[in-house]
Structure formats: C-alpha cells, structure tokens
C-alpha cells in the first residue's frame, strides 16, 4: 500500500525535461502553480492542461504512472468536489424539481473547477520529481535558497537533512514491512476491530521502527564523520549547474502561458 504512492518518485530517462537544469525546473514549477491559481475560466485550464500534456509527451513518462499518482488522492478530490457543489450560486440545475433546488450551476462549475485545478496541480508538480532525482532536487534547492545564508539560515544543513530523509524513505518502507511481518507472525492483528484498537495495534510496529531509525541515524552520523564530513563550509561541487538553451526555451514557454492567463483574465 505504501509503495503505491508515486509522488516523489523518480523515473530515470534522458528526455529534454530530464536534462533540464533542476533549478529551472523548480522555478518553473512555482510559476506553473501560480498560474494555476490565477486561472479564472476554462480557457486558462485549456492552456495549462495543454502545457502539461506537452510535458508528458516530451518526458516519455508512461501515462499510467501519471494516473496512478492521482489515485491515492482520489478521496480528497471527490471530497472537495462534493462540498463545492453545495456552495453554488446562480440558476438551479433542475428548476422543476423542488428538492433539488439547492443544486445550482455555479456549484457544479466550482466543483469542476476545483477538480481540474487539483489534478493539474498534482500531476504538474509531480513531474518535477518524476524527472529529477532526489539528489539533484535537493542540490538545486540548496542553490536556490543559498542567499538566505546571509540571514543565518543553515542552508546546507537543511538541504543535507532533506537528502538524507529522501534517501531513507525506501529503507524505512522495507523495514516497516519486515517488522509488520514479524509481529504478524506473533499473531498481531492489524485489520480487525474499531479504530482505537487498530491504532493501538500499530504500537508494535512504530516502536521498533523508531528505535531502528535512531540506530540508523547514529550509524550514518558515524559513517559521515569517518569520511570527514564537517558541514557545508569549504565543500566544493562535483556537478556545476548552468542554464543552457533548453532551459531558456522552457522558461519562455511557461512564462508565455503565465502571461496568457493574465491576459485571458483581463480580456475575457
């Protein structure tokens, strides 16, 4: 079940999107999100949706994978849509049926708007992680927020923490499965009973997991020290990023979409 969540997963490839400078990808993702929230009518969604389809095609990530990423969030999407339906204004959908008077066109429109916005938001942003390895991502993030170190933000440490956290997600998933099986073998039952019982049943998994996370943290700290890690000062980089033509082209396209949406909002 835990393995079904694809957000944050990296799919190696060598498309233009994969080769883009990760810094540019982060910036453009932020611009994309901003654009999505500025959209006020369906024309805007057509534009952002179109951009997304182009990205899917170029990056060669299988469409099923993209759809699978939405699946765990289906509940939130349905939930949001459901409540938006009630808060509509405008003309009722069925003027002749009395008990359906609350159902307004405005509500349906809002619901559809929310669904499209969430789906575009999730799939769009997940493309950043689909096409960028976690190491590159944190590296780029470190570079982007590095000006903050002048106001004493421990930029390098934050980035290192993020890298380590991401590195250990699969390890801890594995470990969870192992511990779950071991407790199951002792007759632990995680699937029946009410919610309190089930929450309590998780204790035999959580405690060993936390203990082992601490153990790993200590071992990792030792291993890092053995290799003379002493923070970010004076560290040089193996990979130097620089913007190339494809980054500027991508920036131009995304900014064009952004400006178009503003223009659509103003003129339509």
């Amino acid at each position: 079940m835990i393995k079904d969540i694809t957000i944050g997963q990296y799919f190696p490839g060598d498309s233009v999107i994969h080769k883009m400078d990760p810094r540019m990808k982060i910036i453009l993702t932020v611009v994309y999100i901003a654009a999505l929230f500025m959209v006020k009518n369906f024309w805007g969604f057509l534009l952002t949706g179109g951009l997304l389809i182009v990205i899917i095609l170029i990056s060669k990530i299988p469409v099923q994978t993209v759809l699978k990423g939405i699946k765990p969030l289906l509940f939130i999407i349905v939930f949001t849509a459901f409540f938006n339906i009630f808060y509509g204004t405008g003309a009722p959908v069925f003027p002749d049926i009395g008990w359906l008077a609350w159902l307004k066109w405005g509500g349906l429109r809002n619901a559809a708007f929310m669904v499209i916005r969430i789906v575009l938001l999730i799939t769009g942003t997940s493309f950043m992680t689909y096409t960028t390895s976690p190491v590159m991502l944190t590296d780029a993030l470190e570079r982007l927020i590095s000006p903050l170190r002048y106001i004493k933000v421990p930029v390098h440490e934050l980035a290192m923490m993020m890298t380590i956290a991401m590195r250990f997600i699969p390890t801890l998933t594995d470990e969870t499965e192992k511990i779950t099986n071991a407790q199951k073998a002792r007759g632990a039952d995680f699937e029946t009973g009410n919610i309190i019982r089930r929450a309590k049943a998780l204790i035999p998994i959580l405690i060993p997991l936390i203990v082992s996370a601490f153990r790993r943290a200590e071992e990792l700290a030792d291993a890092m020290e053995c290799r003379c890690y002493n923070g970010g000062d004076g560290r040089t980089r193996y990979k130097i990023y620089s913007f190339s033509l494809r980054d500027y082209i991508a920036a131009f396209i995304v900014l064009a979409v952004f400006v178009s949406i503003i223009l659509i909002n103003v003129f339509i």
């Binding site: 470990e175 192992k178 511990i179 099986n181 071991a182 407790q183 199951k184 073998a185 002792r186 007759g187 039952d189 699937e191 029946t192 204790i203 035999p204 405690i207 060993p208 203990v211 082992s212």
Partner: peptide, 24 residues
C-alpha cells in the same frame, strides 16, 4: 477464513532474520 489463518500463525511460529529488531 482470515481468523483461521491468524490461528495458523500460532501453530507455525516464524522467527525472522535479526528478530531482535522487532522487540517493542
């Protein structure tokens, strides 16, 4: 059924590799 399967786990005791990591 599922309940019976859980009963099996009392009949067949399984000690995994490095079982000390399951202590809680």
């Amino acid at each position: 059924n599922k309940l019976k399967r859980i009963q099996t786990r009392f009949k067949v005791g399984l000690v995994f590799q490095y079982p000390e990591y399951q202590l809680f």
